[in-house]
């Protein structure tokens, strides 16, 4: 860990002003950032502690949507009564992640910014990681890539987004509210995380110095039929090989609307509207679900150690839909 200065922000304005310093980074729960700093991957000059800001509320908005403060802890969010009843997908996804201790510390804002678990990104002894050291190459492509992307990757980077929460937010059409020196803006979740392209060092569309203040969830028709399936090597405390956020608006056994997002397969939560549309108007059967899975995985490009993920992802989609739809 390098030496850094620590500043505590008393207001969001304060925090945003402080963040204009070069090398400044916000710290919330610190569950990811501190690890990265210890490993020498992140080397901020200044840490701006935003954990004292008044950003830990969960509010019902007039239009039936919910606003979640960026400082809300993962465990508080997962166990919040309104979230559990209206957005069970989010609650399940949060509880599938990390450990109770980490969830007690980790914040919504931090979780959105969680960095990849690619081995070659984490261990600075490797000389090739475009995400850590732009232009240095990608050791994962020809290396051990069991955890890596099968969709949306680039020559420069095949890392995955490790968050469970992000997958649920993607399925739930969340909006990320961010505030910067020029004021506040709303970023749809689908546009918040980036594909690696030729800038894998940039994970999100957040501008430098912008602070996440909240996540908005629109009113959801998916409360009754939702399932977050996380497939991993270890039963708990392991990152997903594949995860599926699946939710359905079922009316008389027919799919009125559906949402499907995949985790563990790409640089961002993976969602393809055509796959969902393929379910609409149908009753859930094996062929319908498998067809949706095939559409969702179209164009999958596995690597040496993650070939199994394509089929695993498709079967996981079918399983998650089966459970969500109660057709098992």
């Amino acid at each position: 860990m390098n030496n850094f200065s620590y500043q505590r922000a008393d207001s969001t304005e304060d925090a945003i002003r402080m963040a204009q310093q070069p090398g400044a980074k916000f710290i919330g729960g610190g569950t990811n950032l501190l690890d990265l700093m210890k490993g020498g991957v992140e080397r901020p000059q200044t840490l701006i502690d935003v954990s004292r800001l008044q950003l830990a509320q969960i509010e019902q908005l007039g239009d039936g949507s919910v606003r979640i403060g960026a400082g809300v802890r993962n465990s508080d969010l997962a166990n919040h009564a309104a979230i559990r009843s209206a957005y069970p997908l989010l609650s399940q996804a949060l509880l599938a992640g990390a450990s109770p201790q980490l969830r007690n510390m980790a914040t919504v804002g931090g979780n959105l910014l969680q960095r990849t678990r690619c081995y070659y990104f984490y261990d600075t002894s490797y000389d090739a990681c475009n995400k850590r050291a732009p232009g240095s190459g990608c050791a994962a492509r020809g290396g051990i890539n069991r955890q890596h992307a099968i969709l949306g990757a680039s020559e420069q980077c095949i890392a995955t987004n490790p968050s469970d929460m992000n997958v649920a937010l993607m399925a739930l059409n969340a909006t990320v509210r961010v505030r910067g020196i020029k004021g506040e803006r709303a970023i749809p979740i689908a546009e918040f995380h980036r594909l690696p392209g030729d800038r894998p060092d940039v994970d999100t569309t957040l501008a430098p110095g912008e602070l996440i203040v909240a996540v908005d969830l629109p009113k959801s028709p998916f409360a009754d039929h939702a399932y977050y399936l996380k497939v991993r090597d270890r039963a708990s405390y392991a990152f997903a090989l594949v995860s599926v956020a699946a939710a359905l608006d079922l009316r008389n056994g027919t799919v009125h609307d559906a949402t499907l997002a995949l985790g563990g397969v790409a640089h961002k939560p993976w969602r393809v509207r055509e796959a969902e549309k393929a379910l609409i108007g149908k009753s859930l059967d094996a062929n319908v679900m498998r067809n949706a899975a095939d559409i969702l995985l179209k164009g999958a490009q596995p690597y040496e150690y993650n070939r199994f993920k394509v089929e695993l992802a498709k079967r996981s989609v079918v399983r998650a839909l089966t459970i969500a739809g109660g057709v098992a």
Binding site: R117, Y119, D233, R234, A235, S236, Y237, A238, F239
Partner: peptide
């Protein structure tokens, strides 16, 4: 985190 030994759930 990545060298998996059994967790209680296993």
């Amino acid at each position: 985190a990545e060298y998996h030994v059994p967790a209680n759930a296993d």
